[in-house]
Design a protein around this nucleic acid. Structure first.
Lengths: 170, 170
DNA sequence: CTGGCTGCAAAGCATTTGCATGACA
DNA sequence: TGTCATGCAAATGCTTTGCAGCCAG
């Protein structure tokens, strides 16, 4: 998984690249969020956001930390952790529990809501979306007088691939 | 919550009450499970199971531990924890994450599958079941060639009661 | 008797925080 | 120039395990 990615050129941590900051809408959103909260834009936060945006769909704080350190080994885990929290607060990241002991994060800004199929054999995660499912959930919530803030549907099982492998073992 | 329950009479920990063991199907199931696995029936396991069956719908290992200790203060947390694991393995209990840092357990034997509405204000949990939801999930799973083992839908939001309270604050 | 069970204490481990130093605005 | 950010180390807190003595079968 990690082996196939292109090694990004080493980035200077002490220089904020303003030119590149407009590429992705998440960046504008993040800087705006920092401004509103009276927080500061730093090279570390820039690097962490950028790395997060370039990562695979689902990532743990530990994994993101490792990727960030490939570019700047001086960044600490604490900063990655705290930045991930900021990103979650402003909607750029979304956190979730997939059943292992880690908190996983996925990009949450440019993506519509979706649910997850988790393979308990290989750990693979497949996303899916069903408008029908959403509609029924909304209906359930309405019936209970609930004001929905978030929802999460996770389905664990054996993916097609792993079923095939299993079959050939016996 | 805990205040309203009836204080159960102190049970001798050194005596297994065989007569009471048939009351609940879960008990037979548990003893059968222990036998199959070559494990032993003990007074602690009996007490823990019984206490679990008499508890509220959703309980943490810590809460169960406290309840067990009301009846027998000599029981250790480790034993409660390990017994809860056994109960989960044989289907009498079901474990779940509600969003706080605790693992919650609910009775999983005599209950049909259901999903949860979790109030982020008061922490209350409401169960619901929708056959439509189940059907669509089954359809999604089938379409992906997945073999479903478990699934969990959690909806977070503000319950009716808390919305009312909120409204009257402002 | 013997292997499983118990309870204590301690370890694991992801997450979170305290604090002195350093950087942004 | 002051406030916020950083990174190290340490604390947290739920969970899990090692181990010596105990008990069911």
């Amino acid at each position: 998984m990690t082996g196939s990615e292109k090694k990004a050129p080493r980035v200077s941590a002490s220089k904020v690249e303003t030119a590149a900051s407009e590429e992705r809408p998440e960046k504008r959103l993040f800087y705006e969020y920092l401004r509103r909260k009276g927080l500061k834009r730093t090279a570390q936060r820039d690097l962490i956001l950028e790395t997060f945006l370039e990562s695979e769909k689902h990532i743990t704080s530990e994994e993101l930390y490792r990727k960030v350190r490939e570019r700047d080994p001086t960044v600490g885990f604490t900063t990655v952790y705290r930045t991930l929290k900021l990103l979650t607060e402003c909607g750029i990241a979304r956190s979730m529990q997939l059943g292992d002991r880690y908190t996983h994060y996925e990009r949450g800004f440019d993506e519509q809501h979706h649910d997850h199929l988790i393979c308990i054999e290989c750990g693979g995660v497949t996303e899916f979306f069903s408008q029908q499912l959403e509609n029924i959930q909304a209906e359930v919530v309405r019936r209970h007088g609930f004001q929905m803030v978030d929802h999460s549907l996770r389905i664990w099982g054996i993916c097609r691939e792993c079923q095939r492998k299993r079959g050939s073992w016996r």
